[in-house]
Simulated assay, not measured.
Amino acid sequence: MENEKIKAIITGSTGMVGEGVLLVCLEQPEVEEVLVINRKPCGVSHPKLKEIIHADFYNLNPIEDQLAGYNACYFCLGISSVGISKEEYFKTTYVLTMHVGETLSRLNPHMTFCYISGAGTNSSEKGGSNWARVKGKTENDLMNLPFSAYGVRPGFIKPIEGQKHGHSFYKYINWMFPLGRKFFPKGFCTLRELAIAMICVSKYGYSEKIIEGDDIIALARKSAASG
């Protein structure tokens, strides 16, 4: 869709990653329309933006007629595995995501779907942490759906200045970013780079279905160079 404007659906825009991706998408000329689906208002107003308030992400039937006609989805909805059971984590991370993916792939089979999983995700679905296996299974099964799906695996993400939904602890550890970027660039990207990278993938595709931290940086640089 190199010559086609992006019409994107974004989930999780009331969280740090989704809010940052939304803000970047709204300022990019390549992005023509943005639809956010939230359980509560995101608090952003813009001519490009439409918002659907919908409580039950396990049942999208009531809003299906509003989800067709989009060619990209940036899936930023997610929870931490800390403090919840394996069953609840699987339901929220895998079952919910797959329901959204299956619905959107049926309505928009030519869509590019970028799923934010995270550094350390386990594609083999064996061994390691439970969260990494569940995220790996989610990536794998999304890639079996009719649309074009990518697993995006950022590590430390530096928020955009002025975000409403940034995690409070980031202000105490942002000083680490320049050092981390210098010595371990694969694990450190900015939220702006993450958003730009997904926009770039939507327009041009990518040679790999798993997009690691260094891929995110490279894609963002490619976009800047071509723009």
Rank of each mutant, 00 (worst) to 15 (best):
E32R: 07
M176H: 10
G180S: 03
K7W: 05
K5M: 12
Y206V: 07
G151P: 06
S129I: 12
L60W: 09
G128R: 05
V152G: 06
L219W: 01
T103Y: 10
E33L: 10
C73W: 10
Q163K: 00
S13R: 04
G213H: 03
R221E: 14
G43V: 07
G69L: 05
S148C: 14
G101N: 03
I52W: 12
E212Q: 12
K5N: 06
K91S: 12
Y172I: 09
G118N: 06
D65P: 07
V31R: 02
R133P: 00
A119D: 11
L67V: 08
K186Y: 09
V34H: 02
T14A: 01
E64G: 06
H46P: 01
K171T: 13
A68G: 14
G151E: 08
Y58V: 08
H165K: 13
F184G: 10
T97N: 04
G43C: 09
N122Y: 02
N174E: 15
Y204D: 08
G18Y: 06
F183S: 02
G101C: 07
I216A: 00
F183K: 04
I196W: 03
N61E: 15
G162D: 02
G180E: 01
L49M: 04
A8D: 00
G83M: 00
S45L: 11
T138R: 01
V152I: 15
A149E: 04
H46K: 01
E33C: 00
F75G: 11
G128L: 04
G151A: 15
I217K: 12
L104I: 01
G20V: 00
G43D: 08
G20W: 01
S105L: 07
A220T: 00
S45W: 05
S129L: 15
G136W: 01
F183L: 05
G155M: 02
G128V: 03
K182G: 03
M1H: 09
I9T: 09
K7C: 04
F113A: 09
I10N: 10
Q28E: 12
I52N: 04
V31F: 01
T112F: 12
E64M: 14
E33H: 13
V17S: 11
V201C: 08
M98D: 08
G187K: 13
N144W: 10
S80N: 06
N140D: 09
L96K: 14
G127Q: 05
I160D: 02
V201Q: 07
R221D: 14
N140G: 06
Y150Q: 07
I160M: 03
I196A: 01
K222I: 10
G162P: 01
Y204A: 04
T112D: 13
S123F: 14
D65G: 13
F147L: 10
S13N: 13
A68Y: 12
L107P: 08
H110C: 11
T11E: 13
M111H: 05
P62C: 12
D215G: 04
L191A: 06
S123T: 15
E208C: 12
V24G: 02
M111I: 05
C25I: 02
Y150M: 06
Y170T: 15
K137G: 07
R133L: 05
P154G: 04
E51P: 05
K182E: 04
L142E: 04
G83W: 01
L22M: 03
V31H: 01
P159I: 02
L191E: 11
E88P: 00
E212P: 08
C42Y: 08
K222T: 13
G155R: 06
K135I: 07
A218H: 11
